[in-house]
């Protein structure tokens, strides 16, 4: 008897549509609509405080010297964070710790595109 129910289940599955999601959707390489996205710097807002680099869980942010500025007669290096997207775990912590909202999490960028057909 239980075998018959199982047979019914098998037949039902055999004639219904597969639930695999088509590859075409994946190929677009976009982030899921709910994901945190990918960190991108807004250079105008950044003050170079390196709070993001200190707190990054995967050490994916390095502070890079991009120029010099003159504050009260002293020349100080201007630092900007640089993201290593291969190390990044896309947790969005950098955007949350930033006091000046200088890091934006964007979902429309394609950083790593999955390989197309074999």
């Amino acid at each position: 008897m239980t075998r018959l129910t199982m047979l019914k289940e098998v037949l039902k599955s055999l004639f219904s549509k597969p639930s695999t999601e088509p590859l075409a959707e994946v190929e677009k390489g976009v982030f899921s609509p709910y994901s945190r996205g990918c960190p991108v710097l807004i250079p105008e807002k950044c003050t170079g405080c390196s709070l993001c680099a200190m707190n990054c869980p995967s050490n994916a942010i390095t502070m890079k010297i991009v120029g010099e500025k003159n504050v009260g007669g002293k020349t100080l290096p201007v630092r900007r964070p640089e993201f290593n997207y291969f190390k990044c775990i896309y947790c969005g912590l950098c955007a949350q710790v930033c006091q000046f909202n200088a890091i934006e999490m964007r979902r429309d960028l394609v950083i790593l595109r999955p390989r197309s057909k074999c």
Binding site: S13, L14, P18, T20
Partner: peptide, 10 residues
């Protein structure tokens, strides 16, 4: 198809 997959496709 029994397992709700699509099987070989490409």
């Amino acid at each position: 198809r029994i397992q709700w997959r699509v099987g070989p496709l490409l």
